[in-house]
Design a protein around this nucleic acid. Structure first.
Lengths: 206, 206
DNA sequence: GTCTATAGGAGGATAGAC
DNA sequence: GTCTATCCTCCTATAGAC
């Protein structure tokens, strides 16, 4: 009853909790360099000055480590997801802010870009997470656009789900281009320009 | 002088040449399932009813096999690249045709989507190929749009390189979404709709 | 909570016969 | 051109001491 209740909180000692966070940070860095399958958890252990068994005490398997990293990302991005519920124009502008903020954390973007494609592999441990996440973001985005249609602000001859998929595809695709050639890709200007045109095209002409 | 001249042609026996093609096809299928690093060349050998050393006779290392697959893709896509040189509107419509044709070969799209992101990894054997390819396609695309500007058909206040990057990002990103949820993503309709709006937005208003 | 030591397995590549 | 047999390296994970 004291240990088997594995809720989101209720962790061990403060020191262990701190170690846990360190390991998650290091894991993110390692996965950012090589994705999941080609990365070794031994290198993660090395990054935090632990031996391999020492690390495995906190995360029994490599999959556990990956899922913990993904889970933490979910929690951290709740604030951003919250911004998907207001006015449709604000929603799209919010995505521009997310995109801009992402340029400050290329390591995180890198890890998730690689993991995103890698999770297309059958039986990859992250398939579930990315599928669920995609469905959720797409539904929220489509919902925002749909409310714009219902409010008479957005053209009624478009499909909100398709527009949502288009936007997500653009964000993800641009990130890969940006990571490959950062100096030649002004991802902020490109995405802002795209969203500006999209807003203009979606608006009901007055 | 007879063997050391390793030009693009000049292969061994007809039977060997046939085997070579079989192996490349099988390699594509295997990489489509798991990308490069998590795939084993032994499974490729199994697909063509060869032992591992038997396969390594044709491609000495795993990297050689990967590069041969990429090289062949280059040759096969020359026809498509050729279509990037005409009128800017036709160029963009040509991309729609490529996108539509891609829905017929999900295996190839899958392999290249995974490899594309995987090659972001430092020292990945495919970095060079994807970098060169991206630079080439982007330059050709931007060139087409630039000629549209010079012809007075396209607005002069846009950056052709940025628009080119935007389009490539959209194509690549949509492919990942489509591969993850094929039934819920009408990639042809979405990309066609995007290109239609883009053409409209780029046109100089008359 | 962290260590040493080690089991156990998979994958890439080579040597040499046919 | 294809095989059998083998080597070596790297990785995940476990056992058990401190």
């Amino acid at each position: 009853m004291t240990k088997s209740t594995d809720g989101p909180r209720r962790r061990r000692s403060p020191k262990g909790e701190h170690r846990r966070e360190e390991i998650l940070d290091a894991g993110m860095r390692i996965f950012a360099r090589g994705g999941y399958s080609s990365a070794s958890i031994a290198s993660v252990a090395e990054e935090v000055n632990l031996t391999l068994p020492g690390l495995l005490h906190h995360f029994p398997t490599k999959v556990d480590l990956l899922l913990a990293i993904l889970e933490r990302r979910d929690i951290n991005s709740l604030a951003l997801v919250g911004s998907l519920d207001g006015n449709w124009r604000e929603t799209l502008k919010g995505l521009c802010r997310v995109n801009r903020a992402n340029t400050e954390i290329p390591g995180v973007v890198r890890a998730f870009s690689i993991l995103n494609a890698e999770s297309l592999i059958e039986d990859h441990p992250a398939v579930g997470w990315f599928s669920t996440r995609l469905a959720g973001v797409r539904e929220r985005l489509a919902g925002g656009i749909r409310r714009g249609v219902e409010a008479g602000e957005v053209r009624a001859d478009i499909f909100p789900e398709d527009i949502a998929a288009e936007i997500i595809g653009m964000m993800d695709g641009l990130q890969v281009l940006w990571l490959r050639a950062p100096g030649q890709t002004d991802i902020v200007a490109i995405f802002d320009g795209y969203i500006d045109r999209l807003i203009h095209d979606l608006e009901v002409k007055s």
